[in-house]
């Protein structure tokens, strides 16, 4: 085991401890709820970061997969009386299937065309959520989504759901970490570095781009599933273009190609609306400014960028 991966193991251990400690310390239902949302957003951000940060392929329509995960499970449980756990696999499966079908042609595109293609895809899925009102409830949304249970234990009571979500976060972190530090991860990063050079050293760039796209869609759908069963109500507004932009912002703020940055980005942008009173009116201005300022001044992300500035000022 190398030193850096030992370091990582320690960090993941520390995070596990922090998650357990927070679960014990926070007894306010509102705080627990916020932590749950941070967890869900972290899963989303980790997935998108693998695609955007590590592989360099932008997606402006990732909320579509988040929505597919949420709606599939919601429709199966509300209309067809599936148990939520039985709905999990079709939800993830559908997202994976859609990602495969959409990904094959879309990932042949690059740069601006890829961005526009994914944006267009996201819009179409959003319109389907809105217009398929017999199943989705249209603009007014779908209510009465059952909560998750294990045996007779309702996971919505107390901190159970918090542990479930953060368990998933830790799992996703470990998996992402392993992926990045492997032959697969190096191939993905080589595509980001230079797609031509990646081909020239023998990386099947199409296949790898598709794999990581599907995996990030899988994670988005998992987050969507958790989200739907956590709040019991979903509407198309949660999966629109702005939702995709929020996900991109979380990746950007935490730093592209940074797993721990994903945690930071998701935490900051989940907490921001809670801290800033009347945030809703300024949400778009704040997100827009963050995206522009971070990309202009700290393209490595907030954490890395601020650390660099600190080191430079110390050395100066």
């Amino acid at each position: 085991m190398t030193q850096s991966s030992l370091h990582e193991t320690v960090r993941i251990g520390l995070l596990t401890g922090a998650v357990a400690a927070a679960g014990i310390l926070f007894d306010n239902a509102y705080h627990i709820q916020v932590l749950v949302f941070i967890g869900i957003n972290t899963i989303l951000t980790l997935g998108l970061n693998l695609l955007m940060g590590y592989t360099g392929q932008i997606s402006l329509g990732h909320a579509a997969f988040y929505g597919i995960g949420a709606y599939t499970s919601a429709i199966l449980t509300v209309h067809f009386q599936f148990s939520p756990w039985a709905a999990l696999f079709p939800s993830l499966g559908l997202a994976v299937l859609v990602a495969l079908i959409v990904g094959i042609p879309t990932l042949k595109l690059s740069g601006y065309y890829l961005a526009m293609g994914t944006l267009g895809f996201g819009m179409i899925v959003f319109i389907v959520f809105r217009e398929l009102d017999f199943w989705t409830g249209g603009s007014s949304g779908l209510a009465g989504i059952p909560s998750l249970k294990i045996g007779s234990v309702d996971l919505m009571s107390g901190r159970n759901f918090y542990y479930l979500v953060w368990g998933a976060v830790l799992g996703t972190l470990v998996v992402s970490r392993r992926l990045i530090e492997s032959r697969v991860g190096r191939a993905l990063r080589s595509i980001h570095g230079s797609e031509h050079a990646a081909m020239a050293i023998g990386v099947n760039t199409q296949a790898y781009k598709l794999q990581v796209f599907v995996f990030s869609a899988f994670l988005a759908a998992l987050a969507g599933f958790l989200y739907a069963h956590c709040i019991g109500f979903i509407s198309p507004g949660s999966f629109d273009f702005m939702a995709s932009v929020r996900m991109v912002t979380m990746v950007v703020i935490g730093g592209m190609a940074s797993i721990w940055g994903a945690l930071l980005g998701a935490s900051l942008l989940t907490l921001l609306p809670e801290w800033l009173h009347a945030f809703a009116d300024y949400e778009m201005i704040v997100y827009g400014l963050i995206l522009m300022l971070v990309m202009i001044f700290l393209p490595q992300g907030l954490l890395r960028g601020l650390l660099d500035i600190y080191e430079r000022s110390r050395n100066a």
Partner: peptide, 17 residues
Amino acid sequence: PIVLIIITVGASIFLRG
């Protein structure tokens, strides 16, 4: 491109706000 895409998307959200 990826940087400029994110910046112009940011500008779009900002102006809309």
